[in-house]
Design a protein around this nucleic acid. Structure first.
Lengths: 190, 190
DNA sequence: GCCTTAGGTAAACGGCTGCTAACCTCCCGG
DNA sequence: CCGGGAGGTTAGCAGCCGTTTACCTAAGGC
């Protein structure tokens, strides 16, 4: 009935925390082991290598992000609702898993080549979901502009690990508001 | 008349580029040397250690950011002008030195303890300049909210290295517009 | 015309770290 | 009962990498 987080997952989340704080190369195999109560090389019963841990971590994040985002957009009944849903989804993700978001932002370069290709492909598709949604609600953005805007919004939302001084709900409200406002074109009223 | 970038500075900018791309631990002393045409340990004629390079790099960035930001705010004649100036200043910095911005975002954890203390102190003061300016233009933000908003804007602007598909001026205009819009409170008109 | 100094080199060392090897110990199905 | 797999352990190896050392050369000041 209760979920037993299968050792692999324990290790993955502990490693994510450590990678986020100290960087991939700043964390030793022994540190990761210690974080889950086993020591050092026992990790190799569960993962082929340290690189494989990072690889699995990042591909799973990217898949979850893409799937969740796509689902929200598909379920939305209007373009502006889709955008609100997308923002809310990404904000929730960033607030619930700050370590994963941090690792994804900072440690792409530490992946092996094949892993990096996979992750980048997934990320590109996620960005594309955003680009399409943005262009449907902000028609005066051309595609490159929409893409740059999407990256900027990611930066805004992903900044969350650096400022944990508000409680979760206030933070979610603030980030959503700012993200949506940043995408609202200047209304030339006067 | 012409500036001769004193070897030290050559090394520093080359190292910044490499640190930004591969992370501090992902770059070897030999790589840095090779990037400026000398090889390996010759760097120790100019720096006490690899850590010292990162330390000098980050303190100088933080000082430049703080000084420039403070100067812009002091020279502004209104609160909203101060905020526009601050945004413009940070955007220019991020666009002109993407490598430095990236290193500052990602590699704080790799500093030695005394260096980290110094850099954090400078960063805190820079954030404080933003917080005060934001609160003067958005009075309904309390201090923690303003601080979180400042970090979010940093994230937005600093996202620039991840999306170089627009030319400099368009990018500057887009980021400034988005940053200012994100700080504009929802106008409750209806 | 020397001697210092700045700036470079190649070689070697020492510690850290990812990974392997060899071994142990439950636990469980037949 | 007992044999085997799952999941630990410690010891050790191999390679990388920051740093030191010893040495070399060119460029000036006295």
């Amino acid at each position: 009935m209760a979920e037993k987080p299968s050792r692999r997952d324990q290790i993955l989340t502990a490693a994510a925390e450590l990678f986020a704080r100290h960087g991939f190369h700043g964390v030793g195999i022994d540190d990761i082991g210690a974080a889950v109560g086993i020591s050092g090389p026992a990790l190799y019963r569960h993962f082929r290598s340290k690189d494989a841990m990072l690889g699995e971590m990042l591909t799973s994040i990217s898949e979850r992000l893409l799937d969740g985002g796509q689902a929200r957009v598909d379920a939305a009944s209007s373009a502006s609702e889709a955008l609100r849903e997308l923002v809310g989804w990404h904000v929730d993700f960033a607030l619930d898993d700050p370590a994963l978001i941090t690792v994804q932002m900072r440690n792409l370069a530490n992946l092996t080549d094949p892993d990096r290709r996979r992750v980048r492909a997934l990320q590109r598709r996620y960005v594309e979901v955003w680009v399409e949604t943005i262009r449907r609600t902000v028609p005066d953005f051309d595609e490159p502009t929409a893409r740059a805007a999407a990256h900027a919004v990611f930066g805004l939302i992903n900044s969350t690990p650096h400022s944990a001084h508000l409680d979760r709900d206030q933070m979610a409200a603030l980030l959503s508001r700012m993200a949506l406002a940043s995408l609202t074109p200047v209304v030339v009223t006067s």
